[in-house]
Design a binder for these strands. Structure first.
Length: 492
RNA sequence: CGGGGCGUAGCGUAGCCCGGUAUCGCGCCUGGUUUGGGACCAGGAGGUCGUCAGUUCGAAUCUGGCCGCCCCGACCA
C-alpha cells in the first residue's frame, strides 16, 4: 500500500477515494452501497452537527425523532413526493426468518411472515411527519411548529460514492408548519441563509444561493431553494436544500388549523436538510495532494504537538514543557493532541497528521528546549516558523483565525474564477469541456430546453441565483427571450 | 436492469493462455540500530486461491452453474 496520495490533477476521483480512506474518514462497508464512517470522520461530522444544531435552536427549532418505517399507504399520500422517490425505496415485506430445511444451519425468509402492508424505509420523512402533525395541530395557537430531526435515511441508489452518495446516509431534516404562506416562505429562506452561513463561516466554502428550476425541484414542493458549491475539479455540488411545500402535504395528510377568525385552513409547510454529503464537500473544497485540509472551526483536533526525542529522558523533558503549552491552549477552548507515541518517527507523524488535516502542528525537541522556541507549521500553506515558547498562547488562536480566513479566501478566489458567462451554445459547450465550473447563461425557462441541454452536455441548471441581476437576453439553446442568467454546471 | 471487467494473506498484486499445492510489495510480530519530513537490517507469523460441481493421477490454472464486487449507462441529497 502506497503511503502517498495520487495527485489531484491526475485522477480526481481516485485522489478523493484514497484521501477518504487514508485520512481515516470512512470506507465502503460490506453492505451494498453503504459506508462505515470511522471515528475520525465521524468526529468531523459531530462538529458540523453541533454548529448546525446551535443555529437551528437559536432560530427557535427543537429536535424530535420520528420512525424509520413508513407504511406504504402513508408514503403514497402525497402523490408527487411518492412518485419522485418510488424508484429508490427499500421496502420491508416480512418480519421473520426461519431455518432453511434445504440448507442446514442457514436461514430463509418465512413466507408465512409476510406483512399485511409493506413498510417503506424512509427516503425522507415528510409523510410520517405530516401524518403525525395532523394530530398535533388544531389551532393557530399550535403554530408555528418548528421541528428538526437528526436521522438516517435510505435511498437505493444504483451507483454510490463515499459521502457523496450512499444507500444510507445521515442528515438532519427540518419540518415546519405555519399559519400563512408568507411565514413559511420566510422560514424557507431563513434556513437557506443558515445553510449558506454555515457553509461559508464554518466550512470556509463559498456557495451560491438560488432557486431550483422546475425540473430539479423536490418532489412535492412548490419551490426548492439550494446552496451550490464548486469543487476543485470544476464540478458543482448541491450542499443543502430548503423547500417551500405550500399546502401540498397539509392537503395530502389533512392537516388543518382553526384560524383566529375561526376558519378552518390547511397549514403551510417547509422542509430543509443537509447531509453527510457535506463531508464530501468539505474534502473536495480544500484538500490537497498531502491530504485533508480542515477549517479550524470544524477540526476535531486544532493543534497536534509532536515531540522530538532520542530517548526516554529527552521525551520526559519535552513532555514537561509540552504540558504547560497544552494546558494553556486547552484553557482557550482548543483541542490539543500530544502525539507522544514512541512507535513512530516524527516524519511519519508529520505526514499522518497532515493527511488528517489538523490545522496547526507544533514540534518541540531538545534544541527548542535549549532555545526556548517551538516550531509551528500551518496545514493550509504548509509554512513552518519558529516562535518563542511563551508566544504560543497568543500566536496560535490568531493563526487559527488566519487559516480559517485563508482557506475561505482561497476557495472563494477559485470559485469566482470558475464562473464563466457565455452567450451562445457553442461557447457553452466549449467552456464545459475545456474549463468546467459554473456557466452563467440565458435560458428560456422551459423544462424541454433544460432537458435537452442536459442530454447533450450532461450539464444541469444548478440554480437560478437569488442575486441574479435582471437583464434581457436570449436563451442559448432556443433563442427565446430570457430575463436573467442561470447557473449551469456538471454536478455530483 | 443493459454493456465491460474482476474475485489469490488485513490491503494491493504475480501466477492462469501452456495443470504439478502459490510470487512480490505494504501492513503485522520479534530483536537490534535509528528518531528535527513518511527509517534500516535480520528473523518470523499469516492463504478453504469467491463458491458448488465436472474433467484429470493431480486444478488457483481447463469446463459449467451460482454468489459477490468494481467500472460505464439510466437514477440521484
Amino acid at each position: 500500500m502506497g503511503k502517498e496520495l495520487p495527485s489531484r490533477s491526475d485522477d480526481y476521483s481516485l485522489w478523493y477515494n484514497e484521501l477518504v480512506k487514508k485520512a481515516d474518514l470512512a470506507e465502503h462497508s460490506d453492505v451494498r452501497g453503504c459506508m462505515v464512517i470511522k471515528p475520525y470522520g465521524y468526529s468531523i461530522w459531530e462538529k458540523m452537527q453541533q454548529a448546525l444544531d446551535k443555529m437551528f435552536k437559536e432560530t427557535g427549532h427543537v429536535n424530535a425523532y420520528f420512525p424509520l418505517f413508513v407504511p406504504k399507504s402513508m408514503f403514497e399520500a402525497e402523490e408527487k413526493n411518492a412518485e419522485g422517490f418510488a424508484k429508490e425505496c427499500a421496502i420491508v415485506t416480512h418480519y421473520r426468518l426461519k431455518s432453511d430445511d434445504k440448507r442446514p444451519g442457514k436461514l430463509m425468509v418465512d413466507p408465512d411472515a409476510k406483512l399485511e402492508e409493506e413498510l417503506v424505509v424512509r427516503p425522507t420523512s415528510e409523510a410520517i411527519i405530516w401524518s403525525t402533525y395532523k394530530r398535533w395541530i388544531q389551532s393557530y395557537r399550535d403554530l408555528p411548529l418548528l421541528i428538526n430531526q437528526w436521522a438516517n435515511v435510505v435511498r437505493w441508489e444504483m451507483r454510490t460514492r463515499l459521502f457523496l452518495r450512499t444507500a444510507e446516509f445521515l442528515w438532519q431534516e427540518g419540518h415546519t408548519a405555519h399559519s400563512t404562506a408568507e411565514e413559511a416562505v420566510k422560514e424557507t429562506l431563513q434556513m437557506l441563509n443558515i445553510y449558506a452561513e454555515f457553509a461559508e463561516s464554518f466550512m470556509a466554502m463559498p456557495v451560491v444561493k438560488g432557486i431550483k428550476s422546475e425540473g430539479e425541484r423536490f418532489p412535492g414542493a412548490i419551490d426548492t431553494y439550494c446552496i451550490e458549491a464548486m469543487m476543485q475539479d470544476g464540478k458543482a455540488l448541491q450542499a443543502g436544500t430548503s423547500h417551500f411545500l405550500g399546502q401540498n402535504f397539509a392537503k395530502a395528510f389533512d392537516v388543518k388549523f382553526a384560524s383566529k377568525e375561526g376558519k378552518l385552513e390547511h397549514v403551510w409547510g417547509t422542509s430543509w436538510g443537509v447531509s453527510t454529503r457535506l463531508m464530501g464537500a468539505l474534502i473536495m473544497a480544500h484538500s490537497d495532494d498531502e491530504g485533508l485540509v480542515l477549517p479550524p472551526k470544524l477540526a476535531p483536533i486544532h493543534v497536534v504537538i509532536i515531540p522530538i526525542f532520542r530517548n526516554e529522558g529527552e521525551l520526559a523533558k519535552v513532555s514537561t514543557a509540552v504540558e504547560s503549552i497544552t494546558k494553556a491552549l486547552r484553557n482557550l477552548g482548543l483541542t490539543v493532541k500530544f502525539d507522544d507515541r514512541d512507535t513512530q518517527k516524527p516524519g511519519f507523524k508529520f505526514a499522518e497528521w497532515e493527511m488528517k488535516g489538523v490545522p496547526v502542528r507544533l514540534a518541540i525537541g531538545p534544541r527548542d528546549l535549549e532555545n526556548g522556541t517551538v516550531e509551528v507549521a500551518r496545514r493550509d500553506t504548509r509554512e513552518k516558523q519558529l516562535i518563542r515558547i511563551e508566544e504560543v498562547v497568543t500566536f496560535i488562536p490568531r493563526l487559527l483565525d488566519q487559516i480559517q480566513d485563508n482557506i475561505y479566501q482561497r476557495a472563494l478566489t477559485f470559485r469566482n474564477e470558475m464562473i464563466t458567462s457565455v452567450d451562445n451554445y457553442s461557447d457553452f459547450k466549449k467552456v464545459l469541456d475545456e474549463k468546467a465550473g459554473f456557466v452563467m447563461a440565458h435560458w428560456d425557462g422551459t423544462v424541454e430546453t433544460e432537458g435537452a441541454i442536459k442530454d447533450e452536455t450532461k450539464a444541469t441548471i444548478r440554480c437560478i441565483p437569488l442575486d441574479a441581476k435582471v437583464e434581457s437576453g436570449k436563451c442559448i439553446y432556443s433563442g427565446q427571450p430570457s430575463k436573467r442568467r442561470v447557473l449551469f454546471a456538471r454536478a455530483y
